[in-house]
């Protein structure tokens, strides 16, 4: 049996994203061409929520894009099953934009590396900053987030399971000991 620990519930997630949205606004207020791009699939949901919050409290409309990084992965030959490709949908030019790149969990940094390569292939953004809901450490590449929801200390054999209402019907983050399946990373 795997052992599960709840680390964020619905309210926690909402409060965390709210804080990140405010931080983003503080540091980017007045910046032109400011966009949010989420890494499929939870990163996109997070990007949409951040954009919505910015709309609500700052009255600005920040465009949101969706990025599929599978074509840029460096571990295609190592993972068990080939990822199903989803379309990258960035309905605006990234040239000269300030990009807030979003993902749910930051771990080794390899996904972010792939996302950076992918974004740079699409044009030359002025800056890319990274926002994540959770940072679980254990980086394998020199990548650091600019906005972090929560730092968690998780052992390598533990998995973080992020569930978001839009995708999974419920908002919660759970740590699972010893499990090696599902939606976890």
């Amino acid at each position: 049996m795997s052992e599960k620990t709840l680390i964020l519930d619905k309210q926690d997630i909402d409060r965390t994203l709210n804080r990140i949205a405010h931080e983003i606004w503080e540091r980017n207020r007045g910046a032109e061409d400011f966009v949010i791009i989420g890494i499929r699939r939870h990163g996109v949901t997070i990007a949409q929520r951040l954009s919505q919050k910015l709309q609500e409290f700052a009255g600005v409309t920040i465009p949101v894009g969706a990025l599929d990084i599978n074509l840029y992965r460096d571990d295609l030959s190592e993972i068990a099953s080939q990822p199903i490709l989803k379309k990258t949908e960035i309905p605006f030019s990234v040239q000269d934009t300030h990009i807030i790149l979003c993902d749910d969990v930051l771990y080794t940094g390899r996904t972010v590396r792939a996302a950076l390569d992918s974004l740079i292939d699409m044009g030359r953004p002025r800056a890319i900053r990274l926002a994540v809901l959770l940072d679980r450490g254990n980086r394998e590449l020199p990548i650091q987030p600019n906005y972090v929801g929560k730092n968690v200390n998780v052992a390598r054999d533990e998995l973080i399971e992020v569930l978001l209402a839009e995708d999974d019907g419920i908002d919660q983050v759970v740590i699972t000991k010893g499990a090696r399946n599902g939606n976890a990373r």
């Binding site: 599929d68 599978n70 074509l71 840029y72 992965r73 295609l76 199903i84 490709l85 989803k86 379309k87 990258t88 949908e89 390569d117 992918s118 292939d121 699409m122 044009g123």
Partner: peptide, 19 residues
């Protein structure tokens, strides 16, 4: 379905991915 993603790549300015 996979071709949908590939069509998007082909529509980019830099029509190349390292896959």
């Amino acid at each position: 379905d996979t071709a949908l993603s590939m069509k998007e790549v082909s529509a980019r300015e830099i029509k190349k991915v390292p896959t």
